[in-house]
Design a binder for these strands. Structure first.
Lengths: 338, 338
DNA sequence: TTGTACGCGTTATCAT
DNA sequence: ATGATAACGCGTACAA
């Protein structure tokens, strides 16, 4: 067994209470005993037992992080931001990977509750709104989502606004038949709504066939959906994608179909993952400040945990349009001056 | 406060002991009381307190994962493999990101010890061998490393062997002046050794100026080092890189210097991160089975934790040469038939 | 089959 | 300034 306060109390001849005072730098202690105790702690290699501490104090200094897929290039930076802030505040992070499985998500929530974490960050949840409401009442939690349950703390990426901007950008470049490869959402879909809205505002009526939805996004899914889309609507001149990975798949498909990007068809992504600037053609996309997003999530959670009762706060991050090569329109006014 | 065993014992009129039996499915209980207890558990939403459980049992069902940088494209897949196996065995994972800082590494080790994790996975440690020896004796740990402390459990990527293979491949393609952009190691460097060995075996004596070392690898570091290398040794026709990110930086540098890859200069990477096949030209590299590596690490840790005393086991993963475009030599026997 | 009582390592409330 | 001592929630000998 590990060395306990009792051990070092015995060795130094003081009471456990005194050891506790030294360890926690609390209360008045004579410098003499203080030094003796510290020496014993050093010598015996005492490490405070967080379990016992948490049991009595009700605080574990640990939080849960639930994300869909750590190897989705979107998340590592977010996780890094979260972990850094957490560590700066002495908190440890349980990493939970749901693989987009809502049942796993519920399992993890239960496990984290059992671990008595002080708070939970829930990213990209696939739970229903009803379930989400329960989560908010049962746990101290911050949600990264478009949805905003009552009395909740959330951070939202302004995806709707971004899709409007991106769609408008493509329309501005002269495109009229613009497809969208989306992701099946649990409830509502502000991205699709904004995409359709932007089209309609410019007098374009989108056909149902312009928009496809995949349950899980990936490069491969992007490749396949692009094939379907161009098969059904050959006159399409632009495709918006749910994320950069999808867009990369779309570019691959276009290459296979011998459609040049961006000359024959424009492809836009979302997120601006590190890959986005490195592929050929480099992706036009909406840049999301992922590391900062992670920091915001954890900082918000610290506020949630510090609050006495229910805590409500809604934050937003605004993506930025990054114009690279995959849609044309960059530094080449000669081609698009019309 | 959360609902405890006492609460549900009170509600059902049985003893705490009986509740415990039901919760843990241990010992004989009459089906009647069992059902009553389960009902109460459900109704009151009882969640066992892992802290208390861990305190008395000495097992926390949680492990620590220490990695240098979660947003290094090498790690997400590894982490995923670890987390999946851990979760399958009811274990939770504390994620610790050291940012390559050995002091942070020590901090995290202490924090994890304090949390009384059952085991630790240590990836890409920057600790000295002496420190590492201490870690092995103090914690139940699995190390991803080239170094192998006594009585330790390790998984090693056969980097030396791989570098030999890769260097030989380039020599086979006719290169004679081959540079290497490496990373500063804490102790020894099997990669550089194998690179030099392969050269020597083919009668090539490498000049010191052929090899540069960076403290931290990155695309930008690869770009800069390539510039330096080609400045010092203009006749260089091939550059090996510590990892794929470095190689991508090298390709960028070559583009800026108007050296065509692979016609004028060959660039090789290491790891085969998802990016490797997507950049232009696609990278020739050594493929490391990252997800499997993660599984192996966690499976090994389970064995370490199950063992009574010290446990020694050394596993290896063997990277595979993936020939793409960045070094030539693929599917083009016409060019390299000599 | 079920209950009692003690201990796990801390913190915190009282005294002294 | 320091020391007993009672929780915290659970597992487990031991009893009944």
């Amino acid at each position: 067994m590990a060395v306990t306060m009792r051990d070092i109390a015995a060795k130094t001849g003081v009471s456990i209470r005194t050891v506790s005072r030294v360890v926690n730098n609390k209360g008045e202690i004579s410098e003499a005993t203080r030094q003796r105790v510290l020496a014993a702690i050093e010598e015996l290699g005492y490490q405070p037992n967080s379990l016992a501490r948490g049991l009595v104090s009700g605080k574990t200094l640990s939080v849960g992080l639930i994300i869909p897929q750590i190897n989705d290039p979107f998340f590592p930076d977010v996780v890094l931001g979260i972990e850094r802030v957490a560590h700066k505040h002495q908190h440890s992070v349980f990493l939970c990977n749901t693989s987009e499985d809502p049942q796993l998500e519920l399992n993890y929530l239960a496990a984290l509750a059992s671990k008595r974490v002080d708070g939970i960050i829930l990213c990209g949840t696939r739970l229903t709104t009803t379930q989400l409401d329960q989560v908010v009442t049962r746990h101290r939690v911050v949600i990264l989502t478009g949805r905003k349950p009552y009395n909740s703390a959330t951070v939202s990426i302004q995806a709707g606004l971004s899709m409007y901007e991106l769609t408008s950008h493509l329309i501005g470049l002269g495109h009229r038949t613009i497809g969208y490869i989306s992701r099946k959402e649990v409830e509502g879909d502000e991205r699709v709504d904004s995409y359709l809205w932007a089209l309609r505002e410019h007098g374009i009526e989108a056909d149902d066939s312009w928009c496809v939805r995949v349950p899980r996004v990936s490069i491969e899914a992007g490749r396949q959906m692009t094939g379907q889309l161009l098969d059904r609507v050959p006159e399409m001149t632009a495709i918006l994608c749910y994320d950069d990975q999808t867009a990369i798949g779309a570019i691959q498909a276009c290459r296979e179909l011998e459609r040049r990007v961006p000359q024959d068809i424009a492809i836009a992504g979302f997120d601006d993952i590190p890959l986005a600037s490195l592929v050929t053609p480099a992706l036009t996309t909406m840049s999301v400040p992922r590391y900062r997003l992670g920091e915001m999530l954890m900082e918000l959670l610290l506020r949630v945990m510090a609050a006495e009762g229910p805590y409500e706060e809604h934050l937003y991050v605004r993506p930025e349009l990054i114009i690279r090569e995959s849609c044309g329109g960059q530094n080449k006014p000669d081609l698009y001056s019309g």
